[in-house]
Computed example of a mutant assay.
Amino acid sequence: ARPPLAQRYLPGGIGAVAFDRIATGKLGGPSTLVAFSSGSLLNLAQGRFGPHSPSAVRWIATLGTDYGVIAVHRDSPYKRLQDLVAALRQDPSRIAFGAGGTVGSQDWVKAALLVRAAGRDHKAMRFVSFEGGGDALGALQGKHVDAFPG
C-alpha cells in the first residue's frame, strides 16, 4: 500500500509564496504537486508571481464553477444575506470583512459588490487582509471579523 499523499499548507500572497518556493527549488522536488485557487490562477495569468515560468511547478486543478460565498459565524446576528445587506445599508463600516488578499483581490471585490448592492460606497467598508483564506476563516471562527467573502 502506498502512503497517503503528504500535504503542506503554505499561505502567502494567494499562492505566490508556494509558487516561488517550488519554482526556485527551496521546497519540494520533481514529484511535488501544487494545488491552487482561481485567485492564484488570476495572479499567475497577470504575471504577479514573479519571473518564474508557470511551467516551473506541477499544478493540479479542477475544472468547474468557482462560486463565491459570504460566510458568517454560526452565532452571527446575520442569518440571511438580506440581514447583512440591511446592516451595511445602515452603516457599511460596522461590518468587518476578512479575507485572503488585499484591495482589488477577488474576495475584496465580492465584499465591495455587496456594499454597493446595499446602496453604499465601498470605500466606507472595513476590510481586513489575511495571507490566505485559511487565516481569514480562522479569524471568522474566533469572531475577530464579521463576514468572510470567499
Score class of each variant (00 low, 15 high):
residue 8 R to C: 05
residue 63 L to D: 14
residue 94 R to I: 04
residue 15 G to Q: 02
residue 68 G to F: 03
residue 1 A to S: 15
residue 133 G to K: 03
residue 16 A to D: 13
residue 140 L to I: 08
residue 116 R to Q: 00
residue 125 M to D: 01
residue 77 P to W: 01
residue 42 L to C: 09
residue 115 V to C: 03
residue 80 R to Q: 06
residue 11 P to M: 08
residue 46 Q to E: 08
residue 41 L to Q: 15
residue 88 L to Y: 13
residue 133 G to C: 06
residue 4 P to K: 09
residue 16 A to Y: 09
residue 39 G to L: 05
residue 124 A to R: 15
residue 17 V to R: 02
residue 55 S to T: 15
residue 39 G to S: 14
residue 135 D to G: 14
residue 72 V to D: 05
residue 139 A to Y: 10
residue 61 A to H: 08
residue 56 A to R: 15
residue 36 F to Q: 13
residue 76 S to F: 05
residue 89 R to N: 00
residue 2 R to P: 10
residue 109 V to T: 10
residue 13 G to Q: 05
residue 128 V to L: 11
residue 131 E to Y: 09
residue 100 G to D: 07
residue 47 G to N: 14
residue 64 G to K: 13
residue 64 G to R: 14
residue 126 R to L: 06
residue 107 D to P: 11
residue 5 L to R: 13
residue 33 L to I: 14
residue 38 S to Q: 14
residue 95 I to G: 01
residue 25 G to F: 00
residue 143 K to E: 01
residue 51 P to D: 13
residue 88 L to F: 09
residue 59 W to H: 12
residue 73 H to E: 08
residue 5 L to W: 13
residue 113 L to V: 03
residue 90 Q to K: 08
residue 82 Q to K: 03
residue 99 A to W: 05
residue 61 A to V: 13
residue 72 V to P: 06
residue 146 D to S: 09
residue 34 V to K: 04
residue 118 A to Q: 11
residue 26 K to D: 08
residue 143 K to D: 00
residue 66 D to P: 02
residue 27 L to Q: 03
residue 107 D to C: 11
residue 145 V to I: 10
residue 89 R to A: 06
residue 84 L to K: 02
residue 134 G to E: 13
residue 14 I to G: 03
residue 18 A to C: 02
residue 34 V to T: 10
residue 142 G to D: 02
residue 48 R to H: 07
residue 23 A to I: 14
residue 120 R to H: 00
residue 35 A to N: 03
residue 40 S to F: 08
residue 150 G to W: 01
residue 55 S to A: 12
residue 137 L to K: 10
residue 150 G to D: 02
residue 123 K to R: 15
residue 82 Q to V: 01
residue 145 V to H: 00
residue 140 L to M: 02
residue 10 L to K: 06
residue 135 D to L: 07
residue 69 V to L: 11
residue 25 G to T: 13
residue 70 I to C: 04
residue 64 G to Y: 11
residue 90 Q to W: 04
residue 82 Q to W: 01
residue 78 Y to L: 04
residue 80 R to S: 10
residue 13 G to D: 03
residue 119 G to D: 03
residue 125 M to L: 05
residue 67 Y to R: 01
residue 87 A to Q: 10
residue 65 T to R: 10
residue 133 G to M: 07
residue 36 F to T: 15
residue 20 D to W: 01
residue 10 L to Q: 05
residue 96 A to Y: 11
residue 85 V to T: 15
residue 108 W to T: 12
residue 22 I to Q: 02
residue 129 S to R: 09
residue 97 F to R: 08
residue 13 G to V: 07
residue 72 V to L: 00
residue 42 L to A: 12
residue 102 T to G: 12
residue 102 T to F: 08
residue 143 K to M: 04
residue 124 A to P: 07
residue 94 R to P: 01
residue 7 Q to H: 09
residue 2 R to F: 08
residue 147 A to E: 00
residue 43 N to C: 05
